[in-house]
């Protein structure tokens, strides 16, 4: 992980709420969030990163509340930028002062990239499924699709909790 990736992510995370709507409370919250996230990246403070991310989320929520028109891409970029800032801060905090093999840092970045890609894929798939169910599928198929969805969710929950034990 490199600060070169984290600092632009701070700008994105603090900038997206202002870009959606530049109201004064949004700007103030975004400014505070940007400063806190910048402190988190620079001084490896996960606490500051948490407060900064919560402030950015609050600013984003207010901007969405004021502005009815917003996109899915911005939302994904906002989540991905928060993830990379927090992940970088934690990485730098954990291994500060240690000699880190380059493969470790590239693996962490690769994991972030895969996560974002998976998130994008999941969002696209869910959007397509919702569109298909609400508009395309015949009403008779809806209980069947709900049953399949519930079955998959139950299977995923069992898999996750089983592994955790």
């Amino acid at each position: 992980m490199s600060p070169l990736a984290a600092y632009p992510a701070v700008v994105v995370a603090a900038g997206i709420p202002v870009w959606i709507h530049g109201a004064t409370p949004v700007m103030l919250l975004s400014l505070a969030a940007g400063a806190l996230l910048w402190i988190a990246v620079t001084w490896r403070s996960l606490g500051s990163g948490l407060v900064g991310a919560l402030s950015a989320t609050a600013a984003y929520a207010i901007a969405l509340w004021i502005e009815p028109a917003a996109g899915i891409v911005e939302a994904l970029a906002f989540g991905a930028s928060l993830l990379i800032v927090l992940q970088h801060t934690d990485f730098a905090r954990r291994f500060h002062g240690a000699e880190v093999m380059p493969a470790i840092a590239s693996a962490a970045f690769w994991r972030w990239f895969v996560t974002v890609m998976l998130a994008a894929g999941a969002i696209v798939a869910l959007t397509a499924a919702v569109t298909f169910v609400t508009d395309g599928a015949p009403p008779a198929f809806r209980p069947l699709l709900t049953g399949i969805g519930a079955f998959l969710a139950l299977g995923a929950a069992i898999a996750v909790f089983g592994r955790a034990r």
Binding site: T57, A58, Y60, F78, A80, L118, A119, I123
Partner: peptide, 27 residues
């Protein structure tokens, strides 16, 4: 942060905050 985003989504009734929480939850 993901919980805050989901709570915000419920509060302001916007799906974008759920989408923003997806990368954090997937990680």
């Amino acid at each position: 942060v993901a919980a805050a985003a989901l709570l915000g989504a419920v509060a302001v009734d916007r799906i974008e905050l759920v989408i923003a929480a997806v990368p954090l939850l997937l990680f």
